[in-house]
Design a protein around this nucleic acid. Structure first.
Length: 533
RNA sequence: GCCCCCAUCGUCUAGAGGCCUAGGACACCUCCCUUUCACGGAGGCGACACCGGUUCGAAUCCGGUUGGGGGUACCA
């Protein structure tokens, strides 16, 4: 088929006026990136808002960089985020296939037609020659560009060499001495001088297109009307403009989103492990929380809210509202936003979320590291083995009613699902780790006093006491033993939980129940005594 | 080297010539609440990168400098 014939295979869409067709075009070369998640949310929202279509196109034109499972990882990540495309990928659709490696004939036809019309040319330069040219230019501190060696080859020569089977690429013939301009929805008009634009390869020797050709051809035939993509594409947009002009096609609206940065303002790096969507899921962020955070750093809610219904974003977001500076992925803000979502869950929902989360972690079949973020960009890492997680899940699900009582205690102390795992083991008898004698003795500053307090407490302790009676007893105990009541409370806390930081004591003792409370106090007393002797 | 984008508190930003002694949120600090932590409440710290213009008047407009980011592949 020639290019004209493809136009009838892929007829224009019949959508309402104003409906926008958007897309993401990830290349399956690794784990799904958080930046891709942002692009997906934005593109999905624009399509939704205008009654258009959001499509997914797999841009796998670099055969050497393909990674097995990358596509599946992406789909799983998008599904988790709730940013599922309307068409595309392996979902199919009217404009299928949506996988570039399956559309080679179209690109080849397109490239050929460009050559015929004088907008592109065959190039036989070898990699070695190209390398030499580049090195020479670098040494001379000149711009590194193709020297157009094959640009004016005679037609006969080209045909002869092609017929002889010589390897060739097709390059874009960039016109001389013109200005190439396009309008970026947030940046306004951007102008490039054609002399700064390379005669880039658009069709490789292996018959695959490069990004530039493929993206223009696909966006055109798939009826894409608005392109939202990363800022890193701005420098190559003029090439796309040239291609649209050469084909005589209308250029879609285009806007570039800034690149996500880390706290040191660098491009979000893989080194810290925080670039993959899965990493955020592992850390215990809720998809809604992550999504809200992502939209929050590139958009301002009209009421200045940090946390808002996603529909607000879908309804009110305008591409031209995008910032032009690269936002920093601030984990503390993420924690805050996510915490707000976690609080909105009912106890039953939180319970279900944690169970699902634990299954997800266990299915990963690897050690899990939770990074807890503190001020000044520092973080502490807690590593769990698969076995530890399995043990935790077992304890957590042993008695759902009991666990929900635990979760109901103070849900506002959790910012991420992982906080539940980190902070609740002591509620479960199977996981309880008694405190050391040193820790138990710490509040009162003396092992003997600690033992006295604990023994006295066991004497007065009655599970049936209400909060007032219980508190009165402890204070009375402190008075008669001549100990500070705050310290006594803390000693009890440590004996009962092994931790210095817990929700209110009385509620914990209620949940634990008499048998377990007595067991833990005995344990504590013995621990101190045997440490002293 | 060359090309492009950008520049308000630590971070995300509000601000589209006078409403700005620059507002909000996160973070941080202090105090209150309190048996610890968390939550909540009340305060606090904290920014228009710099230099020139334009203007009666500039965070807002223009130019330059500096700084940051991106691109410069038969990668996307």
């Amino acid at each position: 088929m020639n290019l004209e014939q493809y136009a009838s295979v892929y007829p224009p869409r019949s959508l309402d006026p104003g409906a926008q067709v958007t897309r993401i075009g990830p290349s399956p070369t690794g784990k799904a990136h958080i930046g891709t998640a942002l692009q997906a949310v934005i593109n999905r929202s624009i399509a939704e808002q205008t009654g258009g279509v959001f499509l997914l196109r797999v841009e796998d034109t670099d055969q050497e960089r393909l990674v097995v499972g990358a596509y599946e990882d992406l789909i799983a990540a998008l599904a988790w985020m709730g940013s599922i495309p309307d068409e595309g990928g392996k979902l199919g659709g009217t404009y299928a296939p949506y996988v570039q490696s399956q559309r080679l004939e179209i690109y080849q036809a397109a490239a050929k037609s460009l050559v015929e019309q004088g907008h592109a040319y065959y190039c036989f330069c070898t990699a070695e020659r190209l390398k030499m040219v580049r090195e020479k230019q670098e040494a001379l501190k000149q711009p590194t560009m193709y020297d157009r060696h094959c640009r004016n080859l005679a037609k006969d020569e080209v045909e002869t060499r092609l017929a002889a089977g010589e390897a060739a690429v097709i390059r874009l013939k960039v016109p001389d001495q013109t200005q190439i301009r396009f309008n970026d929805l947030v940046r306004g008009e951007i102008v490039f001088d054609s002399s700064t634009i390379d005669d880039s390869v658009i069709l490789k020797t292996d018959g695959f297109p490069t990004y530039h050709l493929a993206v223009v051809v696909d966006d055109h035939f798939m009826g894409v009307t608005t392109i939202v993509r990363g800022e890193e594409w701005i420098p190559s947009t003029p090439k796309h403009v040239l291609l649209y002009q050469a084909f005589g096609w209308e250029m879609p609206r285009v806007v570039h989103t800034p690149i996500l940065r880390d706290m040191s303002r660098r491009k979000l790096s893989k080194r810290s492990g925080d670039t993959s969507i899965t990493w955020y899921r592992i850390q215990g962020y809720l998809p809604e929380g992550l999504r809200n955070f992502l939209t929050r750093i590139i958009w301002v809610h009209p009421e200045g809210k940090d946390v808002y219904d996603h529909q607000d974003f879908v309804k009110l977001f305008r591409p031209e509202d995008l910032p032009n500076t690269g936002p920093v992925v601030d984990m503390q803000l993420l924690d805050f936003v996510n915490g707000q979502y976690l609080r909105q869950l009912t106890t039953a929902e939180l319970y279900a979320a944690v169970v699902g989360y634990l299954h997800f972690l266990i299915d990963l079949k690897q050690e899990i590291a939770f990074d807890v973020f503190a001020a000044s960009g520092t973080s502490t890492r807690f590593v769990y083995t698969q076995d530890q997680l399995v043990q935790y899940l077992k304890a957590f699900t042993k008695d759902a009613d009991y666990t929900q009582k635990v979760l109901a205690l103070e849900p506002e102390r959790f910012k991420r699902l992982s906080d539940v795992i980190l902070n609740t083991p002591y509620y479960f008898p199977a996981l309880f780790q008694p405190a050391s004698a040193a820790l138990l003795s710490k509040p009162l500053g003396d092992p003997e006093k600690a033992v006295t307090a604990l023994k006295e407490y066991l004497l007065v302790y009655a599970q049936s006491d209400d909060h007032t009676a219980w508190e009165a007893k402890v204070r009375e105990l402190a008075r008669t033993t001549n100990l500070k009541d705050g310290k006594v409370f803390m000693t009890i806390r440590i004996a009962a939980t092994g931790s210095e930081q817990t929700p209110p004591l009385f509620e914990i003792l209620q949940i634990l129940g008499e048998t377990e409370v007595r067991r833990r106090f005995q344990l504590a007393i013995h621990s101190i005594i045997s440490a002293v002797n």
